[in-house]
């Protein structure tokens, strides 16, 4: 990282401000556009999308449902109706293609909150971080399914900040701003990326989908890396970078294969050396076959 703790400075010099914030801007536009689609109805009477992120109906024909809520529903013993099942399947297939945690970085409104907390954390140079495992989210994912099965109710949706915020924005927040503030303060003071990167069982679920997803970020030109560490500083799941960026010696390919990668593209933005690029999981094969040899032309397109 450059002195002063502002990752991406060099990238701004090389690529310009927009070039160094391309995916960040696209993500914010995506998050806000999806929210705007939901709000156009209640605010302006423009009913393109009805419902909220848990389940929706687009143009009175296309059903979309959150597969995790449906999974909890199944755990309670209730078999959802065909509209919800169809909608859940469409969403499932979509995220299996584009990457599970694309939900987190391109759709989820809480991401804006936690990104803001992380940005402020860097600016205020808050170093301390609570020591809990990033695998806690899988335990929580198991726990919410277990609670659903034991209580016979979708208990997690009583407290889920993700659906709470989305539903709140579309249907009325109530005290949900308090939960937004809690998540913000958690990420700011308690632990770096504590919510999205360690606790959120919704992210854990989509991360599991992401293990098999097609669309990937790759350290395509990793030999150009000058170890500035900017990508580590901005990456919400920075443990996923190292194997792809530095794993060539161990025979690892340049494609980030971890399901935790949110495909946010921020590493692509902040890298002045243009190391990273979007690609597919299939671009990793040739690299594994010939470890230690550069094949940058194959994955750079």
């Amino acid at each position: 990282m450059q002195p002063g703790g502002r990752p991406g400075r060099e990238a701004i010099e090389v690529k310009g401000w927009f070039g160094a914030h391309r995916y960040l801007i696209l993500r914010r536009l995506s998050q806000l556009a999806i929210l705007a689609l939901f709000l156009a109805g209640p605010w302006f009477g423009l009913w393109i999308v009805k419902g909220n992120i848990a389940s929706s109906l687009t143009l009175d024909t296309l059903p979309l449902s959150d597969p995790l809520v449906l999974l909890q529903m199944l755990a309670t013993g209730h078999i959802p109706g065909s509209a919800a099942l169809t909608g859940g399947l469409i969403v499932l297939v979509f995220y299996l293609v584009v990457g599970g945690r694309v939900y987190c970085s391109w759709v989820c409104p809480v991401n804006i909150v936690t990104d803001a907390a992380d940005w402020l954390r860097r600016r205020l140079k808050i170093k301390g971080s609570a020591n809990f495992s990033e695998k806690t989210r899988y335990w929580l994912l198991g726990a919410i399914l277990l609670v659903a099965a034991v209580t016979g109710s979708i208990a997690w949706e009583l407290v889920n900040p993700v659906s709470m915020v989305y539903r709140g924005l579309v249907f009325g927040m109530g005290l949900a701003w308090g939960v937004v503030a809690a998540v913000f303060l958690l990420d700011l003071f308690v632990g770096r990326r504590a919510w999205c990167g360690h606790l959120c069982p919704v992210g854990a679920f989509y991360g599991l989908l992401g293990e098999a997803a097609v669309l990937r970020v790759a350290a395509a030109r990793h030999e150009q890396c000058d170890d500035c560490m900017d990508c580590f500083a901005v990456c919400p799941e920075h443990q996923v970078i190292r194997p792809a960026l530095k794993g060539a010696d161990k025979g690892l390919g340049p494609v980030i294969l971890s399901g935790h990668c949110t495909n946010c593209g921020r590493c692509i933005d902040v890298c002045a050396q243009d190391v990273f690029a979007f690609t597919t999981r299939f671009s990793n094969n040739s690299r594994q076959a010939v470890p230690g040899v550069n094949h940058k032309s194959e994955v750079s397109s």
Binding site: G51, S55, A84, R167, F171, G174
Partner: peptide, 21 residues
Amino acid sequence: IRCGLCVRDCPYDTLRLAELG
């Protein structure tokens, strides 16, 4: 599933979704 589609299709604004609190 707490989606509020019933709320949206109610012609008389009778239904609402419970907010936090």
